[in-house]
Design a protein around this nucleic acid. Structure first.
Lengths: 246, 246
DNA sequence: TCCTTACTGCGTATTAGGTACGCTAAATAG
DNA sequence: CTATTTAGCGTACCTAATACGCAGTAAGGA
C-alpha cells in the first residue's frame, strides 16, 4: 500500500490508515486516547502527569490496551502535540508582514498558554502534523509579499519559532519553579547581595546596587512585556533583512 | 548561622557550608558526585542516562550514599548545570557591544556543545550558580558602553539567552531525532509532497514545489549558519534599540 | 579514657512507570 | 463453519527515585 512508506506516527497524525476489516470493534479510538492524555496534561498542568496507566484509567481501559493504538508513549506525545493546537486563525489578508508575524507570534503564545506542557514535548523532527504544519504555513504566508527567497522565509520563520519556543520554555520553567518555591525568587536580590563580589561580578553588582532585583516581580505581566520586547527586537532585525532584499 | 537563610542548593553551589566537625570522614565529596554525573551525561550524550544508581556505581558507592550530599536528583541536576560550564573567557576590552555579544553567544554555544544535555536541565529559577552568573555578568558587561538603562540591558541579555537556549534545545532535539531515525528526515520532502494539499497549505506547497526540501541536510553545518543568521537579526534589532537610546 | 553526639554509608523496601509477551475472544472473509 | 485478523488485557519484568532505620565512626566533653 502506498502509505506503508510513511513513518507510522505521520500516518497516524494525518489519519491515513485504511479502516481494518476483521477483528473485534475497537472500544477505543486513537482520538479518545489523545484527548484523554491532553485532558490530563491540561488539568495537571504537567506533562509528567501523563502516564499510560493514568490515561487508560481515565478511559476505563487497561494500560496495555493503549498499545494497540499507539506504539509507545513517545508516539503518544507527538500525537498530543499536534492535536493540542487548533488551526491558526487566518491572518488578515491586508496586513503587512510585520503586523502579520506579530499577530502570529502572539497567537502562538496564546495557544500554547492553554497547553503549557506543549513546549516540553521533545521535538523529534520537522513539523509533520497537520496542525503544526498549518501554523508553519501561516507564518510563511505572512512573508509572501516581502520578496524574500524561499530559504530566507524559512530562516526568518525558524528564528521566530526558536524565539517563541525559547520564551515559552523559559517562562514555563520559571513559573513552575516559582510555584514550587516562591521564596527563592523573592530572596533573589538578597541572595545576590550576599554572594556577589563586585570584583568578580562587576556588572551584576551594578544591577544589585541599582536595586533592580528589589521589587517583587509579577510573572504574568512581566513575561508578556518581555515577550513583546524581544519580539520587537527580532522583527526590527527582520525588517533590515527584508529591506536589504534577503 | 548566616547562611541558613540561603536556599540549600544555592549554598551548595557557592560552597558556603561550614565544615562539619563530628562523624566519620566522608568518603565522597559533593564535587566527586557532580563530576561523576557530568561524566556520565557527557559520555552518554543524554541527561536521562544519569541515574542516582549509575552515579553511585561509578563512584564505587551505594545509591543511597549520595543522598547524604544531595537532597534530591533535581538538586544534583542544578549543581551539574552550574559545574558544567566553565567561567567565560573575558571579552576583549576594546570590543564594541555587538562584537562582544556575538562572541559571547558563540562562546555559549561552543561551551554547551561540549555538554549538550545542559539545555535539558529544567531551569527552576534565576541564574544562581557562580558560573552561570559569571556568564550573565559577562554579557551585561558587553553592553556597558551602550548607555542603556540597567533594565534595558537585562532585557537585551534575557532575549539573547532565550534565543540561544531555544536554538540549542531545538537543534539538540532535532539531532537526537535524526540519530534515532534518519529516514524521517530524508523522507521529509517526499512526505510533504504526499500529504500537502496546496489549497490548505499554500505556502508550504510553494516550498515543496521550489524543491527546498529535496537536498539532504547537513545538521552540523546548517545549524551553525541558522544560528548566526538568527543572531544577526536579533542584534540588528538591538542596534536599533540602542540608537534610539533605550 | 570513655561516653555522647552528630554524622556517614548503606541495606531494605516501597512506589511509580514503561512495556514485552502471550492468551482469549470477537468479527469477518472465504 | 473455519481460518484469520485484531482488540483488550493479565502478568511479569525492568528501571528508577527515595523513605527509613541501623551500624559504625570520629570529635567533644566529662
Amino acid at each position: 500500500m502506498e502509505n506503508n512508506e510513511l513513518p507510522a506516527d505521520v500516518a497516524l497524525m494525518w489519519r491515513l490508515r485504511e479502516a481494518p476489516r476483521r477483528g473485534p470493534k475497537p472500544s477505543l479510538t486513537l482520538d479518545d486516547i489523545v484527548q484523554a492524555a491532553i485532558a490530563i496534561a491540561d488539568e495537571e498542568g504537567d506533562l509528567a502527569a501523563v502516564s499510560m496507566a493514568r490515561v487508560a484509567e481515565r478511559l476505563g481501559n487497561s494500560t496495555m490496551a493503549l498499545y494497540r493504538h499507539v506504539k509507545s508513549k513517545d508516539e503518544l506525545l507527538v500525537l498530543m502535540s499536534d492535536a493540542a493546537v487548533q488551526r491558526p486563525q487566518p491572518l488578515p489578508a491586508d496586513a503587512d508582514w510585520r503586523t502579520g508575524l506579530t499577530l502570529w507570534a502572539r497567537n502562538v503564545m496564546a495557544e500554547i498558554r492553554r497547553h503549557p506542557w506543549y513546549a516540553k514535548v521533545p521535538i523529534s523532527g520537522p513539523p509533520a502534523g497537520p496542525n503544526n504544519l498549518a501554523w508553519f504555513d501561516s507564518a510563511l504566508g505572512a512573508l509572501k509579499d516581502t520578496g524574500l527567497p524561499e530559504e530566507g522565509k524559512i530562516g526568518v520563520v525558524m528564528g521566530l519559532v526558536t524565539y517563541v519556543q525559547g520564551q515559552i520554555r523559559m517562562s514555563g520553567d520559571l513559573a513552575a519553579g516559582y510555584g514550587r518555591n516562591p521564596a527563592a525568587f523573592e530572596q533573589f536580590g538578597a541572595v545576590l547581595r550576599r554572594v556577589v563580589d563586585p570584583r568578580v561580578y562587576p556588572s551584576v553588582a551594578k544591577l544589585v546596587d541599582a536595586g533592580v532585583f528589589d521589587d517583587e516581580v509579577n510573572f504574568e505581566v512581566e513575561s508578556d512585556a518581555d515577550f513583546d520586547f524581544g519580539l520587537a527586537l527580532y522583527l526590527d532585525g527582520v525588517a533590515g533583512y527584508i529591506s536589504r532584499g534577503g
